[in-house]
């Protein structure tokens, strides 16, 4: 690990000012479960580490306001899993948060951090995309909201600009009933990085939102508005055709050592069906 200076602002203003001055040489520390690995491996050698955990405005946790559930930058995966609001409205996010790393990792890793890393394999991304999340970013130009689907560029890269950081993630409380489930493939049952990660949400209107990751440079969100996927009586071939069009954007890397492209693509289809079934079951349970 290289030497760096540790900065611990207590207000957003302070952080914004610091990042405006040192944005390119600074890295943001929330849970640190990815950052410390990069530091240890000397993949990055920042001059400053800016710890956001002491910023009062970011300690708001999970809050419901005006039909939006906001999750502040300090909320860990463990907190998310235990949160009644999240459990009530976003069970697929609970599924995903529950499989991020081990207990020890979940006690530190934050949802916002998971998103900001922009790993294609991030398990929280597919459910957040399915639930229509928005990212609230703050910088010297002020606050802006970015739909999560516009946030990711490619592995490790987001649309965040220099000096900008994410204060929270906001999720609209579903206005129509929805059943959603997150599933994944790993090399073992114990904690592992996903070789395919996928979330499917079925709305009572018949719209299906499906998102998947780890099979391309960034997570993908696709919609089926035909009602076919949501229709349990629809013929298999019709469903398969829709899945095929949904999965057309998958382009798994040949270089990955976690799984071959052929296997990932096949598993994408297996998981798609599995998540759809689970999502439908959850939707029906609500009814």
């Amino acid at each position: 690990m290289s030497d760096f200076e540790y900065v611990r602002p207590t207000t957003i203003d302070e952080a914004v000012r610091f990042l405006a001055a040192h944005g390119t040489e600074a890295r943001i520390l929330a849970g640190g479960t990815d950052l410390l690995i990069q530091l240890r491996n000397n993949d990055i050698q920042p001059s400053f580490i800016l710890d956001v955990k002491h910023i009062r405005e970011l300690q708001t946790g999970v809050q419901l306001k005006d039909g939006l559930v906001s999750i502040s930058a300090t909320v860990t995966m463990s907190e998310l899993v235990m949160d009644p609001l999240i459990n009530r409205y976003f069970p697929a996010l609970v599924d995903a948060a529950n499989v991020v790393g081990s207990v020890q990792i979940r006690n530190r890793a934050t949802l916002v951090g998971n998103i900001c890393n922009a790993s294609p394999a991030a398990d929280s991304a597919p459910p957040l995309l399915v639930y229509g999340a928005e990212v609230v970013a703050i910088g010297s130009q002020g606050k802006r909201r970015i739909p999560l689907n516009d946030f990711f560029v490619r592995s490790g890269v987001t649309v965040l600009q220099r000096g900008e950081f994410v204060a929270s993630i906001e999720l609209p409380v579903p206005t129509t009933r929805m059943g959603a489930a997150h599933v994944r493939r790993t090399r073992r049952r114990g904690h592992d990085l996903a070789s395919v990660t996928l979330c499917c949400g079925v709305q009572e209107t018949g719209v299906v939102r499906l998102s998947y990751g780890s099979v391309g440079p960034r997570p993908v969100l696709a919609l089926d508005t035909s009602g076919i996927l949501a229709d349990e009586k629809a013929p298999e071939e019709a469903k398969t055709a829709i899945f095929e069009s949904i999965f057309a954007q998958a382009s798994p890397s040949k270089k990955s050592m976690r799984a071959s492209p052929a296997y990932r693509l096949a598993m994408l289809r297996v998981l798609g069906k599995q998540a759809l079934e689970l999502a439908l079951a959850r939707l029906n349970d609500q009814g």
């Binding site: 540790y6 640190g32 020890q104 990792i105 530190r108």
Partner: peptide, 21 residues
């Protein structure tokens, strides 16, 4: 943070002390 050999409780929560400054 993969092996847990460095696990300690910080404010009552189990964490990997290799992943915390």
């Amino acid at each position: 943070g993969e092996c847990g050999a460095c696990t300690v409780l910080v404010n009552g929560k189990a964490v990997n002390s290799c992943l915390m400054l």
